[in-house]
């Protein structure tokens, strides 16, 4: 009973923050709302027995990645989008909204309810999996991160000749 109350609380915070992310005019407010959404999701991870993932969500996502975002927003001194004020119910927006709504409804109506099983989300269990079953993916992701760092530095160079 308590678990379901906590779930609906976290889900409500997450959805309200997500709506604010896509509707706020200023990018800075969107970024702040996104941080709230990411923290609410970390809360949901805790409810799913994924304590270490929740900690990483706060550290890596709400911490590192969002610091990058806010840094770029402040660096570029972004103002709110000067919309040519398309009407809220333009044809393309309505069509896209209906298509996405249909997609979401198909997923929601097709999931089957099943009881959850206990899952070990400790650092020990995840670390063992990372270095055994997922060893190749683990090494590959480190190369991807290295390439991304080099790529970001190259893209950020003053002159690309």
């Amino acid at each position: 009973m308590l678990a379901s109350v906590l779930f609906y609380f976290g889900a409500a915070v997450l959805l309200v923050a997500a709506v604010f992310v896509i509707s706020a005019k200023s990018p800075m407010r969107s970024a702040m709302a996104l941080i709230v959404a990411l923290c609410a999701q970390a809360f949901l991870y805790v409810l799913l027995d994924a304590a270490f993932v929740a900690a990483m969500q706060v550290l890596v996502y709400a911490g590192a990645i969002m610091v990058l975002f806010t840094f770029v927003i402040m660096l570029l001194n972004m103002q709110a989008e000067h919309q040519t004020q398309r009407s809220l119910l333009s044809f393309s927006r309505l069509g896209g909204g209906i298509a996405i709504g249909y997609f979401v409804w198909r997923i929601i109506s097709s999931v089957t309810h099943a009881d959850s099983k206990p899952v070990d989300g400790s650092v020990l269990a995840i670390g063992k999996l990372l270095l055994s079953d997922y060893l190749f993916a683990f090494e590959a992701i480190s190369i991807v991160l290295l390439v991304a760092v080099i790529g970001a530095v190259v893209l950020g160079l003053k002159r690309l000749t």
Binding site: S116, K117, P118, V119, G121
Partner: peptide
């Protein structure tokens, strides 16, 4: 969580 598998995490 549904299948009791840490792989998802």
């Amino acid at each position: 969580k549904q299948y009791g598998d840490t792989g998802g995490q």
